[in-house]
Design a protein around this nucleic acid. Structure first.
Lengths: 152, 152
DNA sequence: CCAGAAATCTTGACTCGTTCAAGAAAAGGC
DNA sequence: GCCTTTTCTTGAACGAGTCAAGATTTCTGG
């Protein structure tokens, strides 16, 4: 995934190719699962003049177009990743909020057969694994980087 | 689940039995998947003097104690339910944000065997089904009650 | 290469869910 | 009933995200 690919991705989605958009794509590539603030910081390393609103807008249109995927574990702010279209899942650390990718062992569309869906038409099954990351498992003083505590 | 049960639940969790707590439990029982604002409104029907902070506190301790379960689908505010301990899952409407319970057909601990967990110690697998609720499937003008749009 | 229309970005104010902090009130053991 | 501790009220504050208006940029077509 180099800048050339990004340009093609944007054009393929009928989006204009702009400096902020390329910078955001590069930032998300370099920092998988980064939140908006981190993306903004990464973007400004190369493009100091980009506004926070632009980053929100860009992440919004890229998500809608399916070029990036937005995830938001409970108690976390929105996070973004480039890995898209394979419906992989995520492990989230209850202690520090760290996120990692996980391929579900059950198959391509895990658990997509819910028993009684109450008439809902389902198009995606999203699995979030909750637990403790290696660092927090060992550490006696886990880094409290999460904004709110986990559900349990 | 009557008030007597609620009192026992609280005492069993070593929590004091107070009017606000009982009112919150009743509110969550009557309005499954309600957000904090709705719980507050329901509480104030019977206890007009209860503060919003009290409701936040109560929902917080009840969640920590496992008496209620807190869920927060991406793009939604926190929601609460009494049904607890059975690790059931949820369908969320992308259009209006409506939530319904779903029992996973795969088994009691669905998808809990992730392939490579990157050293995380996993204690829960949470499945969120995304789709369209019956009302929004039919309706030409879906109610836009969600705060932000869905991921895709 | 240049002009025009449409999309995108900047600026700055603002909303809303949630949290923080300090003091008042209530719960429960003795 | 009294005392200690927990819980609640009050009121301010925070931060992620949104809204809106005007300036810039992109890209199409001449």
């Amino acid at each position: 995934m180099d800048d050339h690919d990004f340009e093609h991705l944007l054009r393929g989605a009928e989006l204009r190719v702009t400096r902020p958009r390329l910078a955001v794509l590069r930032a998300v590539r370099r920092h998988p699962h980064a939140d908006t603030g981190s993306v903004l910081a990464a973007v400004r390393v190369e493009q100091p003049a980009v506004s926070h609103q632009a980053v929100y807008d860009v992440l919004g249109v890229l998500s809608e177009s399916g070029l990036v995927r937005r995830i938001q574990p409970a108690g976390s702010v929105a996070r973004y990743e480039l890995r898209v279209g394979d419906n992989h899942h995520h492990v989230v650390c209850r202690s520090c909020g760290e996120v990692a990718d996980v391929d579900c062992a059950v198959g391509v569309r895990p658990c997509l057969d819910a028993s009684d869906t109450h008439g809902f038409v389902i198009d995606e099954a999203e699995v979030t694994y909750w637990g403790t990351c290696p660092a927090c498992s060992t550490d006696r003083t886990p880094s409290q980087s999460r904004t709110t505590e986990g559900t349990r």
